[in-house]
Computed example of a mutant assay.
Amino acid sequence: MIRRTAALAALTLTLTTGCARATTEQATPPPSAGPTAAPVAAGPPWYDDVAPATAATTVGPEGSACQLAMTFSVPAQWKVEAVTAGREEFTLGPAVPVCEIDAKPAGHIGFLRIWQIEAATPLSPQEAVDKYLAAFDGPKEQQYRKTKAGPLDAFEATWTEEGERKRALLVSTGSGRLMVTLGGLDTEEFEAMLPAYQLAKSSVHLPK
């Protein structure tokens, strides 16, 4: 019940704010399964054929709604707000919510969320994702890969939760590791919001 509650909380996050069985018939990879360095993969689960949306807002720079240790772009009408209260309640494993980008004003039901990875001991990217997923009620079809976020080396995960596709991207910054997640009401909404995720992923930069 605790894990179920945490999963629902992550999907319906409403805070006081300020500012990954695979698609083949293989068994679900165990948590220790390493990431693949796959070529471009069209369609699910990676959707590499989806083009990024048009950039409208830059998230992360000093003076923006969410000041982060990296910057990236989001499409028009997505509402960017920093998480300034309720972080402990909605922390999942080592992932602490710091920024929420709501797609509702753009006509979709879902969010891009930014999490700061915090742990008492260093975690590999996959360990960080697996500990985050442990807060959910039986995530399935986990797959991992090394990828690029803008010009930076990054780590990406995809999984399903109750049949709905989810995504996470981890980027190392000068101030620790940040994770960008995409989730929606259902897989249809997830796919509709993928251009925004692809935009965020392709536009990541570290401040100079």
Rank of each mutant, 00 (worst) to 15 (best):
residue 184 G to V: 00
residue 178 L to F: 12
residue 178 L to K: 07
residue 177 R to E: 11
residue 169 L to N: 04
residue 182 L to G: 03
residue 172 S to T: 14
residue 174 G to K: 14
residue 180 V to T: 09
residue 193 M to H: 00
residue 162 E to A: 15
residue 173 T to N: 05
residue 192 A to E: 05
residue 177 R to T: 15
residue 166 K to P: 00
residue 171 V to R: 06
residue 181 T to N: 05
residue 169 L to F: 04
residue 190 F to A: 05
residue 171 V to I: 13
residue 177 R to A: 13
residue 193 M to W: 00
residue 175 S to W: 09
residue 173 T to Q: 03
residue 186 D to E: 07
residue 164 E to Y: 12
residue 193 M to L: 03
residue 184 G to A: 05
residue 175 S to M: 12
residue 166 K to L: 12
residue 162 E to S: 15
residue 180 V to M: 10
residue 172 S to N: 15
residue 174 G to W: 08
residue 193 M to G: 00
residue 171 V to Q: 07
residue 188 E to M: 14
residue 184 G to T: 01
residue 164 E to R: 14
residue 187 T to N: 07
residue 178 L to D: 07
residue 167 R to S: 08
residue 182 L to N: 05
residue 171 V to M: 08
residue 173 T to H: 02
residue 178 L to P: 07
residue 175 S to G: 10
residue 184 G to L: 02
residue 184 G to R: 02
residue 184 G to M: 01
residue 193 M to E: 04
residue 181 T to I: 04
residue 164 E to T: 14
residue 185 L to P: 08
residue 182 L to S: 01
residue 192 A to G: 10
residue 180 V to F: 08
residue 170 L to M: 13
residue 190 F to N: 05
residue 171 V to D: 04
residue 166 K to V: 11
residue 193 M to S: 01
residue 183 G to W: 01
residue 163 G to K: 09
residue 164 E to F: 13
residue 163 G to I: 08
residue 184 G to I: 00
